[in-house]
């Protein structure tokens, strides 16, 4: 089994891993990724019948219209938010 850079992954997903949890999470990540690596064998299955053009993707567009919320909904949204000031939602400064 390969070992993974748990510290880097935990920072990427912003989840703190305690030193005593590290071995267990490393074991679990390794077992999942070792199994999933099977997909790397698939090149032998690909042929012309399954090329990109058979795969349909369409864009679904709609008008960007502002729909206002009722006072009741505003209050519920404010209440569900961790921090607010009057009608403003407060978040942490990111820059």
């Amino acid at each position: 089994m390969k070992s993974y850079d748990i510290k880097k992954l935990s920072e990427l997903v912003r989840i703190k891993i305690l030193p005593e949890e590290k071995d267990d999470i490393d074991r679990k990540i390794s077992s999942v990724l070792d199994y999933s690596a099977q997909v790397q064998e698939i090149s032998e299955l690909i042929d012309a019948t399954t090329d990109q053009e058979n795969y349909r993707q369409i864009n679904v567009m709609r008008k960007d219209e502002v729909v206002s919320s009722s006072q009741e909904e505003r209050e519920m949204i404010l209440q569900g938010f961790p921090e607010s000031n009057k009608d403003y939602l407060l978040v942490k400064k990111v820059i």
Binding site: Y4, I6, L9, S10, L12, V13, I15, I17, I25, K28, I29, V32, L33, S36
Partner: peptide, 14 residues
């Protein structure tokens, strides 16, 4: 919980 952490980290890796 632990399964959410596990899948998030595997997701970040792949």
């Amino acid at each position: 919980g632990s399964e959410v952490r596990l899948r998030s980290m595997v997701g970040a890796f792949v």
